[in-house]
Structures are given as C-alpha cells and as structure tokens.
C-alpha cells in the first residue's frame, strides 16, 4: 500500500467519523446529551458578597437563612448529575463531622429529572436522597429554580460557604475534594 492510498483512506476515515457523529446526533437525539451540552446558569453571587435571604422547606424542617446563627454550607445539585451523585459521599462525611456547628442545605437546581430525560419532580429528589443515602437536609424542589439560578456557578454541583455574618466566603463547582471543603468550613468556624 503506498502513501497516496493511505492518505486517501485516512481522509475518508476522518470525514466519515465527522459525518457519522453529526448524523448520529441528529437521528438519535439524546435528552441527556442535549442537557449536558447547555452551559448551566451563571448566578450573580461572588465571594465577599452578601448572601441574599432565602427560606425553603427541607427534608429536616424549614430553613431560613436570616434566622441561621451558624455558618451555612450550601450545595446546588442536579439529581441526574454523576458528579453530584458521587459528591454525596463527601457531603455525608462533612455533615457527620460539622453537622452540629454548620447548617447544611442542598437545593435541587435542575429542571431535568434523575433519569436525565424527564422533567424533575419531588419524587426524583426523594429517589436521590434514598439512592445515595443522603443524611444532610435537602431543600424542596422549586420548578422556577429561584435560589439555584442565583447560586449556580459554572456547573453542578455548585458549593458555597456562607459565614455567620452572611457574607459568602467560598463558592466553587465540580467534584470538590473533601479536604478543600473541610478547610473552608474550618475557616468559616474561626
């Protein structure tokens, strides 16, 4: 086989790869892939800003930010998001260590349900709690995502720490290591 033939085969293979990829997406639209391809909302909250007041019913009673005297650990998650699902292990561990000194609250922040295709519902949130043995308080699902849209930063999960003075001391997204989150909570407790 000479160089010319190999060159033609290579160009055809690459062109085929692109064409097949594009056609596959058109013929087999995946709601999960479509959701994942959309950049999540980018909220206005910044480190150093004052946390806007919110109240929300949770799996462990009502939560009122203004009435909270402890630092707050806030997570905005999506029930379908694999990163959020894996992060539950870390959040459970942090809750076990800091749960008495820090107020934990995780709020569902996506319109898409746990299967990645259907619309999010309170049942998805309940399924998430049971499937991943979530120990910390989970907020009620709000279809308008009012709180989530304010806090989402870059993607799911978004995690923030709010000091006793209601100033945001930390906000980040993704699968954040336990060590980093623990350091932020220690800082908020000083």
């Amino acid at each position: 086989m000479n160089r010319r033939v190999l060159g033609i085969i290579s160009v055809v293979a690459i062109a085929l790869l692109v064409v097949v990829g594009v056609i596959y997406v058109k013929l087999h639209p995946s709601a999960q892939l479509q959701n994942a391809s959309v950049a999540p909302a980018d909220g206005s909250i910044e480190i150093g800003s004052r946390a806007p007041q919110f109240t929300i019913p949770t799996t462990q009673g009502p939560f009122d930010l203004n009435a909270e005297t402890k630092p707050v650990f806030l997570e905005i998650f999506a029930t379908w998001c694999p990163h959020c699902q894996r992060e539950t292990v870390i959040l459970n561990a942090l809750y076990a260590t800091y749960g008495t000194r820090v107020a934990f609250i995780a709020i569902p922040g996506s319109e898409t349900g746990m299967d990645g295709t259907s619309a999010e519902s309170p049942f998805d949130v309940l399924n998430f709690v049971m499937a991943f043995k979530v120990k910390y308080p989970i907020g009620e699902y709000d279809p308008n995502l009012t709180i989530a849209k304010l806090w989402l930063k870059g993607g799911y999960p978004t995690i923030a720490v709010i000091g006793e003075n209601k100033i945001v001391s930390y906000i980040n997204s993704g699968e954040i290591p336990q060590k980093e989150l623990a350091a932020q909570l220690d800082r908020a407790l000083k």
Partner: peptide, 17 residues
C-alpha cells in the same frame, strides 16, 4: 459547555467525535 464558548448544537456531535 462549561467553557461557554460553543453552541450546544456544536457541542453534541463534538462530544461524540
């Protein structure tokens, strides 16, 4: 998508290819 540079219609096939 997190980079907020490309349209979702481009990201979908790109993620496969």
């Amino acid at each position: 998508a997190g980079f907020r540079l490309l349209h979702p219609d481009i990201i979908e096939p790109l993620a496969l290819i």
